[in-house]
Design a binder for these strands. Sequence first.
DNA 1: TTGTACGCGTTATCAG
DNA 2: CTGATAACGCGTACAA
Lengths: 341, 341
Amino acid sequence: MAKKQVTFADIAEYTHFSKTTISRYFNHPDSLTLENQEKISQALDTLGYKKNKLAKVLANGKSEFIGIIVPNLYLHYYSEMLTQLLSSYSNYHYKFLVFSSEHGAEEEQQYIEELLSYQIEGLIVLSHTLSSQKLASYQIPVIAIEREAEYISSITTDNYMGSLQATSLLIRDKCDILIHINVNVEKTVPAYDRIRAFEETCKEYQVPYDIDLSVSGNSYQEILNVIRRIFTRIEEKYPNQKKGIFLANDTYANMFLNLIFQKYGKLPPTYEIIGFDNSPIASESILPITTVGQQIDVIAQTAMELLVQQMEEQKKRAPKPLEKPIHKQITPVLIRRNTTS
Amino acid sequence: MAKKQVTFADIAEYTHFSKTTISRYFNHPDSLTLENQEKISQALDTLGYKKNKLAKVLANGKSEFIGIIVPNLYLHYYSEMLTQLLSSYSNYHYKFLVFSSEHGAEEEQQYIEELLSYQIEGLIVLSHTLSSQKLASYQIPVIAIEREAEYISSITTDNYMGSLQATSLLIRDKCDILIHINVNVEKTVPAYDRIRAFEETCKEYQVPYDIDLSVSGNSYQEILNVIRRIFTRIEEKYPNQKKGIFLANDTYANMFLNLIFQKYGKLPPTYEIIGFDNSPIASESILPITTVGQQIDVIAQTAMELLVQQMEEQKKRAPKPLEKPIHKQITPVLIRRNTTS
DNA sequence: TTGTACGCGTTATCAG
DNA sequence: CTGATAACGCGTACAA
């Protein structure tokens, strides 16, 4: 509000060109003589011109905005994913409007409305509350990351492969009993494949297994208490057997490892432990934890490629809305550290 | 581009009102009769109207955008801060444009230019590369968080108080030797006060102390190796004394604790350990670590209050640019856990 | 209570 | 290579 911005009109007046020519200076500089480019260039910084992209957007319809909705940034997975998405700026020059939504569907819908009102060209969704059907109804390119995505395109870690790798390692290491510890995930969620792969692999190789889906809780302490109960149960039930424990994530794995260490002062040879995610805690733990590493950078990159592609399509005169959603899976890598032999 | 947006003009035509009235429906609904409000309301969803905030911004100059520049989101401190800032949306309804910048000053300046071109009303800076003088020159409300801020307003943890609390606790617990482990921070950085308070407090109470600023490295492994060297040195130099170790952050504290555990299988009574930040690792560690908890939520909240205030000022007819920058310090809280008696 | 006319800063179209 | 003019969608004096 202070002093009016310097606009194309001002530049035009100063240089005795028209606004159109000034515009061209920015968008098709080749169509001006070098001499005139120089004139305008000089006028620009004697007048102290600053672009106004909003006006540009209004005029040409290309906002270069992408909306992101994450459940939270507390979990390393989400914050790292956001980092990777933001870093794509250097490639694509899309700007990101970020919302964090943890209070249910209404809130999330409201955020999307707001995002749409800023003419976002695409949307990346990491939260779970809105159905993919609802998301598809917004008629805008959407990419889901690691969530239910029947009606929209998605990128997901290949949970089945990850779990298979972990389970196979425990089998190769000749564990007597394989145990998988997880929350009771719904079958529609991609992460359910971790349970499925564990079970199917155990059956295939005919090794005894035990699936414990009793984990729950909203705080570290609550979850730790559950893990402690599970630990006690396992200690009692499989006293002298070699136990291969595959946990749903590195946080659980770290809890379990701590409990072992507090009891034995070390990791006894009767235990092998594998986590999931390759989050920092896996390497910061008392013993670096073997884990299934999600390739967050690759996931983010792939998401952007897919989204950019669909957004480009939208800008054409006859945008074909992509009759079938595209689903990509990124294979995770097994990272062997010190909790397996 | 697909089908044109529904605009006020369309609503106006449909309802036989003027565009102005439609505009008023949104901004001063009281000035319409209830009957007409109803008419318009109905027209809105039969036509499927969606707002266009960009047009609104262009018309009234209030973008409701705030720019954020963080160095990265890998560190818990930054991601948590971003979370807290984003969550202020429910109070203030400002939208956030987020950039992550780790490649030096030119990159960062470019990002700020871009942000300005989107008519951001304010800027929150967590990165260190640009001087506060430079930032002040952009003539826009800026808040610095935990960084040099001579020429701009800032929010900082009261590092002196935090360090003082930690040091005092170690003294109360009758440690024979107090040791502070840190990187060699510059004196202009707020975190330097941690070193200063440690030293001054030790001197005041006349306890022997040892300041080790040799920490360095860009990866977890590199840093761990340095911490290991320091650990070895301390073990040799102060064999039978009770050692009070105050580390610059919880990650270092966790490393140190792990080294102790790997050697002794427990935390011997000759050690007390205090970290800084209250990041997740402090509670996820093999033994929950006593730490100085930064009140990230309070910092974020205060930052937003200050920024909103300055942005409001800007919108007035005679915006007074705040002759002196305001600096606020947030007192951290000592969180006593299991690595102190 | 409602409408007219114009401005916000840029781009697109058509003309020359 | 350059320019006039009309969009883009909404807000706001000023007038009625």
